[in-house]
Design a protein around this nucleic acid. Structure first.
Lengths: 173, 173
DNA sequence: CAATAGTTTCAATCATTTTTGAAAACAAGC
DNA sequence: GCTTGTTTTCAAAAATGATTGAAACTATTG
């Protein structure tokens, strides 16, 4: 496969994956493009490569900056802005976890706590089913949240070593 | 808060969370409703509670069955079908991991392997940037995939104990 | 400060996804 | 094999989400 074809395929696939996980397809594609570019790119470069409008490029670049995945660069002597992605995938993963935890996990945990405080009223069986389900859910999501907190605070070497130990244990037992 | 209000709020929130993670809002709501219902429900119950059409209810129920999160029940003497959700959240989580790994992680890993086989052609710096990025990505996603494999195979007690040990270690060091 | 180069915004448009509802298919009972 | 109650399908409509493009805005330069 030629480099151009491989790049194209990678960008498309990253866009598809993003869209399946609630991330705007174009945003994921812009991210993919910047990930594989050794040099930082201008808005025009991105518009040209991905065949998108200026407004679209701008919006998705801002969103990526907002997620902490892309940064601006001002080249000296140049008037226009250039953009580059964080290339260290461990950093990228941590950043995505930080943001999704903040934006999506925390709010849902808050609501679960709220609805658990339901008053006892009519049907006790219904009430119990509700409180039990919500309680279990909140336990598991809290567990996942704590785990992700460890991931974002962890040193990558410690973390990967720990994971590997987990795999070994699970294989042996 | 009254039970009815709490249920409504929970269903809405679960729908919102689903839609942020690439799961049809209504599908998530149907799942939420079945999760908190002590009894299995008919399509009409679901249509009525969520104010959705018969076709919509049917489609999303099928999808949930396809994901292994909901099952049909034929009540004796009754002609219509009833539906109930797997209530054990650990089972639910495992099932979701199984499906998303199969549907989304495996395909992307396959494509990453493919595009890594790019031929050396023109610009070596570009080529290296591409191969490095894709290689790192594939390493991290593979790691995550392996971890999830452990999760779905794991006994819940062993797994949670292991996680707790991880937290302790990460706090101490 | 006027001209120029570039960025940002946002109402209108376009594309995609979801939902509806009615018809077809199916199944059970008579 | 007809009737009745139910589920399934799917084309069309509605809703949602993404994209455009042009105008407004901002910053830089001479």
């Amino acid at each position: 496969m030629q480099l151009a074809e491989a790049k194209e395929k990678f960008i498309q696939e990253w866009g598809t994956l993003g869209s399946k996980w609630g991330i705007n397809r174009t945003m994921a594609q812009v991210h993919a493009l910047l990930l594989i570019s050794p040099e930082s790119l201008s808005a025009d470069d991105i518009m040209g490569t991905l065949n998108i409008s200026r407004g679209n490029a701008n919006m998705n670049l801002r969103a990526l900056i907002d997620w902490g995945l892309v940064k601006k660069e001002h080249k000296s002597g140049e008037r226009r802005e250039y953009f580059y992605a964080e290339k260290d995938i461990w950093e990228v993963a941590q950043q995505v976890i930080v943001e999704r935890r903040k934006r999506e996990l925390k709010p849902v945990l808050k609501v679960l706590e709220e609805v658990k405080e339901v008053e006892s009223g009519g049907d006790e069986i219904e009430l119990k089913a509700f409180v039990d389900s919500v309680g279990d859910l909140s336990k598991v999501i809290n567990q996942a949240d704590k785990f992700l907190e460890v991931v974002v605070k962890a040193d990558r070497n410690w973390f990967f070593n720990t994971l590997i130990k987990m795999f070994d244990r699970s294989v042996k037992s």
